[in-house]
Structure formats: C-alpha cells, structure tokens
Simulated assay, not measured.
Amino acid sequence: MSDFDYRAIDDVIHSRVRLAIMSYLASAHVTEFTELKKALKVSDGNLSTHLKKLEEHRYVKTEKGFVGRKPQTTVEITDEGTKAFQTYVEGIASMLGQSKNH
C-alpha cells in the first residue's frame, strides 16, 4: 500500500460543483460566466458562491467587463489553481489505484 494520505485531498476542490468548475477550466483555461453556468447546469447564485470560494484560495480569477453595452464576466484558472487541480487529480488517482490492488 502506498503512503498516500486521504486527508491530503483538497477540500476546496472536492465539492462536486467546484470539482466541475476546475475540470472545465483545466481544459478551457478561460470562459465566460454564462458559458460555465450553462455547461454545469447550475444557477447564477450557486456558481457565484463556488467561484467565490475558489477565488479566496486563488485557484480562479474573475474579471467583469463590458462587450459593447453588455456586461460580461470571465472566469480563468490561475497557475496556482492548475497546480492544485493537478495535485488533486493525482491524489484521487493514487487512491483509486490502491483500490484496484485489493
């Protein structure tokens, strides 16, 4: 059995919605708030709450602006967020690999 400690799993990312956000951004890198909301099928408020938590840990950053007269919010994964997500995925993979051996 490896030395992996399940307590090392990042609780900030481990929430279903935050995991979905990080997974989406890991490949898209940057997206519009409305596109992310549509892809994850969550409400504005739910997405905002989870993005705020990710922003507090510097895993994502949001920028508000305008395209013409229309407001637009973009969401981008940070370098810190990319590293945290990679560590999270490797940790989960390690745990799952242990279960295959038993």
Rank of each mutant, 00 (worst) to 15 (best):
I92L: 15
T78Q: 04
N46Y: 00
T62L: 02
E90S: 06
E80T: 11
G65R: 05
E76D: 06
A28Y: 12
Y88A: 10
N46W: 00
L51Y: 10
R69M: 08
F4N: 04
A84L: 04
I9N: 07
I92Y: 01
T78C: 06
L96E: 09
R58E: 15
A20N: 02
D10A: 08
G65C: 03
Q72F: 01
F85Q: 01
D11V: 12
H50S: 04
E63D: 08
G81F: 07
V30I: 14
A93P: 05
G91H: 12
V67T: 05
D3F: 00
L19V: 05
L40K: 00
A39Y: 01
E32V: 05
D11K: 12
F85K: 01
H102R: 10
A26M: 08
Q98A: 14
Y59D: 12
G65M: 03
E63S: 11
D10Q: 08
T34Y: 01
F4D: 03
T74S: 11
E80V: 09
L51Q: 13
V89D: 08
L54N: 07
R18W: 07
F66L: 10
K83N: 08
I9K: 05
L51P: 08
V67D: 07
E56Q: 12
H29D: 09
S27I: 09
R58H: 14
N46L: 00
S2Q: 11
K52A: 15
H57T: 10
S15M: 06
T87P: 02
K100I: 15
G68M: 12
L25V: 07
Q98G: 08
S43P: 00
K37M: 12
L19A: 10
K53E: 15
R16W: 09
F4C: 06
K64H: 09
M95Q: 09
E63G: 05
N46I: 00
L47D: 01
E90F: 02
V60H: 09
T74V: 14
A28D: 04
I77Q: 13
A20G: 01
S48L: 11
E32G: 13
S15K: 14
M1E: 10
T73G: 01
S2N: 14
V60N: 11
H50Q: 15
T62R: 15
R69A: 10
D79R: 13
K37P: 02
D5H: 06
V67F: 02
I21L: 03
V30L: 13
E80H: 04
I13T: 10
A8C: 07
Y59I: 11
E32S: 07
V60D: 11
E32C: 03
T31W: 02
L47I: 00
